[in-house]
Design a binder for these strands. Structure first.
Length: 198
DNA sequence: GAGAAGATCTCCT
DNA sequence: GGAGATCTTCTCA
C-alpha cells in the first residue's frame, strides 16, 4: 500500500519563498528514524530566516562555513549549536544561491513517545518538545545531522500528515533575537498547547 | 590567537 | 523574572 502522503515532501516544496514555506510547514509531520523505531511529530511552531534583508539571520552578512547550507539547495537540514548547550534544527529554503531557512521551534509528538522520553527527561509531555533546543534533544538530533537531504527517506525527513486538517495560524515577532525583532516572521498553530511561548 | 556574542534552557529567588 | 551555564563561530589583529 503506497499512499502519497507517506512520501517525503519534494524539493519544490522547499524551493519557494521562505515565509511561504514556513507557514506551509505547520501541521506537517517530522519523521525521525532511530534504532529501527520512528518518532512522528507534528510541526506546530516555526520561524523564518532569510538573507541580506534579515539582520537576525546567520546569512545576513554573507556566506560563511557555518551558514553555507542556507545558500545551497532547498530541502536540506541545517543544524547549528548555540549557547554552549543546544542544537537547533532548520530546513533550507529558496532557490540555490538565495539564502533562507526555517527554524523548527516546537513539535507535538504523535508517535514514538517512549523513545523520545528516553532521549530527553521531561517532567511533562509538553515540556518534552516545546522549544527549539528541547525538540532536538528529544529527537536526538546533533551536528551529525547537519546537511541531510530531507526529500529522501533519510533518518530524518518531513511528510504530509494523513489528515491535513485546516488550522488557524498565529503570526508574531520572532523569539530570542535583538536585530530584526520587529519582523512578524514567527508562525504557530493557534490552539496548540505545544507552542514555546504565547 | 584572543575576545565577544549567541535563533536557549534550567534552576533559583 | 533573572542569572548562569558552556562552547562554537565569527571578527579583528
Amino acid at each position: 500500500m503506497k499512499t502519497i502522503t507517506m512520501e517525503p515532501l519534494p524539493r519544490e516544496f522547499y524551493s519557494r519563498d521562505t515565509l511561504v514555506v514556513a507557514k506551509d510547514l505547520l501541521g506537517k509531520y517530522l519523521i525521525r528514524h532511530l534504532n529501527d523505531e520512528n518518532i512522528v511529530a507534528k510541526i506546530v511552531e516555526v520561524e523564518a530566516y532569510r538573507g541580506s534583508d534579515d539582520p537576525a539571520s546567520h546569512a545576513y552578512k554573507g556566506q560563511t562555513p557555518r551558514n553555507q547550507l542556507m545558500f545551497g539547495k532547498a530541502g536540506f537540514s541545517y543544524v547549528y549549536f548555540t549557547y554552549g548547550k543546544h542544537y537547533c534544527l532548520n530546513v533550507t529554503t529558496e532557490k540555490e544561491g538565495i539564502p533562507g531557512a526555517v527554524l523548527i521551534r516546537a513539535i507535538e509528538i504523535m508517535d514514538g513517545l517512549e523513545l523520545a522520553r528516553r532521549n530527553r527527561k521531561a517532567n511533562s509531555l509538553v515540556n518534552l518538545s516545546n522549544g527549539p533546543g528541547k525538540l532536538t534533544e528529544a529527537l536526538n538530533i546533533t551536528k551529525i545531522h547537519n546537511g541531510l537531504d530531507l526529500t529522501e527517506r533519510n533518518e530524518l525527513f518531513i511528510r504530509h500528515s494523513e489528515i491535513d486538517r485546516s488550522h488557524e495560524i498565529t503570526v508574531s515577532r520572532r523569539i530570542g533575537i535583538k536585530a530584526g525583532s520587529e519582523k512578524l516572521w514567527r508562525f504557530y498553530i493557534k490552539d496548540s498547547t505545544f507552542v514555546s511561548k504565547l
